[in-house]
Design a protein around this nucleic acid. Structure first.
Length: 352
DNA sequence: GGTATTTGACCCGG
DNA sequence: CCGGGTCAAATACC
């Protein structure tokens, strides 16, 4: 237990250092492109409008959050060896920062350095900007000039069942993929328009015999449609887990999911907290009749309040990060992702 | 009637 | 030209 917290501390110290360095870099970059367009990778000029600075920094912070997540995930594997069989099979297999080679698993992902992070953030923003430009140019009577999504801040999670990730998703497409037995389902955040949340994901069954679902997430949520901690419950795929509640001051490290920001929380608003997903595709359809089928589509009550921002800091500050379970940590981090200052404050406080 | 899903068309990159 | 990602009209659902 001591090893866990000291390990975590040193990792977070590294993150703080990296963050400070990156902040300096960011300031320079932003100042630079305030006067002229920014050259990225020496080949293209990406004119990052000043309005994108915030998104740029958010991406930066997201990368840091991801790094912290990775470190934490590794730690969980080392110190919380599977006492539950579900722990093994439900895992993120890759944190993708480059479009290239794919695969290779998550090994070494925690060894990102600041340069990598910064470079990654720039690439993300550049491609995002590019995508926005093309979206803004399509005429009204024609279908949009959709730009294929560039690989940007994506990560993959494999799971034996369709699990919640704590966000409301709306399906917007389905495609048959070459050499794949099952179609790929495309989801975007429900708050794409009302909160301009750019997060998307696609879900595909990649294996039959032991069912294996691969979820690829793109982008971080910028929406505030979280569930309150007191209303959250862990994945109830396993009956014995169904009664475990999560509290941020809870010391129970029972978390299983390994999502950088939004783990498999589930709403516990009455027994009908899950809405079965009515998928047209084969696996989705068959799962529809399975009592254990879990929706990948969370229906969040529209009036669900976000975390109370004013109390967030004190709440977070009062928690010992070494005792938080990882889901709680990343849920917290997701909040801090919107507040650069708060994130720093949190890290500094925890290391004091 | 409002919202979510379905599904074929559209678009882009390779 | 093909494969994959997205849009949006039609449809289903509550």
């Amino acid at each position: 237990m001591e090893g866990v917290s000291s390990n975590r501390q040193s990792e977070m110290e590294e993150l703080i250092q990296g963050r400070e360095v990156a902040s300096g870099q960011l300031s320079r970059v932003i100042n630079l492109h305030n006067n002229r367009s920014l050259t990225v990778n020496g080949d293209h000029n990406h004119d990052l409008g000043s309005g994108d600075d915030e998104g740029f920094v958010n991406k930066m912070l997201g990368s840091f959050s991801n790094t912290l997540f990775i470190a934490n995930g590794k730690e969980m594997k080392e110190f919380h060896h599977d006492d539950d069989q579900e722990l093994i099979s439900d895992q993120i297999i890759q944190v993708n920062t480059s479009g290239g080679g794919g695969g290779g698993g998550g090994a070494g992902a925690s060894s990102w350095d600041v340069d990598h992070l910064l470079d990654h953030a720039i690439k993300c923003e550049a491609s995002h900007e590019e995508s926005c430009k093309s979206a803004s140019t399509f005429s009204t009577d024609r279908r949009g000039s959709y730009k294929k999504r560039k690989t940007c801040h994506s990560w993959i999670k494999d799971s034996p069942a369709l699990t919640e990730d704590g966000h409301a998703w709306r399906k917007y497409g389905q495609k048959l993929i070459l050499n794949a037995k099952h179609p790929r389902n495309y989801f975007r955040c429900t708050h794409k328009f009302d909160q301009a949340c750019q997060a998307t994901k696609h879900v595909q069954q990649v294996e039959d015999d032991p069912p294996l679902f691969r979820t690829t997430y793109y982008g971080n949520h910028t929406c505030r449609g979280y569930l309150k901690a007191s209303e959250l419950i862990l994945d109830c795929t396993s009956p014995r887990e169904s009664s475990k509640f999560i509290r941020f001051d809870d010391t129970n490290p029972s978390s299983k999911q390994e999502h950088p920001f939004f783990s498999s929380f589930k709403s516990l608003k009455g027994e009908e907290c899950f809405k079965e997903e009515t998928m047209p595709s084969d696996y989705m359809t068959t799962q529809h009749h399975n009592q254990l089928a879990l929706s990948d589509y969370l229906v969040s009550p529209p009036d669900l309040p976000a975390f109370a921002s004013p109390g967030l800091m004190s709440e977070f500050a009062s928690a010992n990060i070494a005792q938080l379970d990882e889901d709680a940590i990343y849920r917290k981090m997701a909040e801090f992702n919107y507040d650069d200052f708060a994130f720093d404050e949190f890290l500094q406080h925890e290391l004091r």
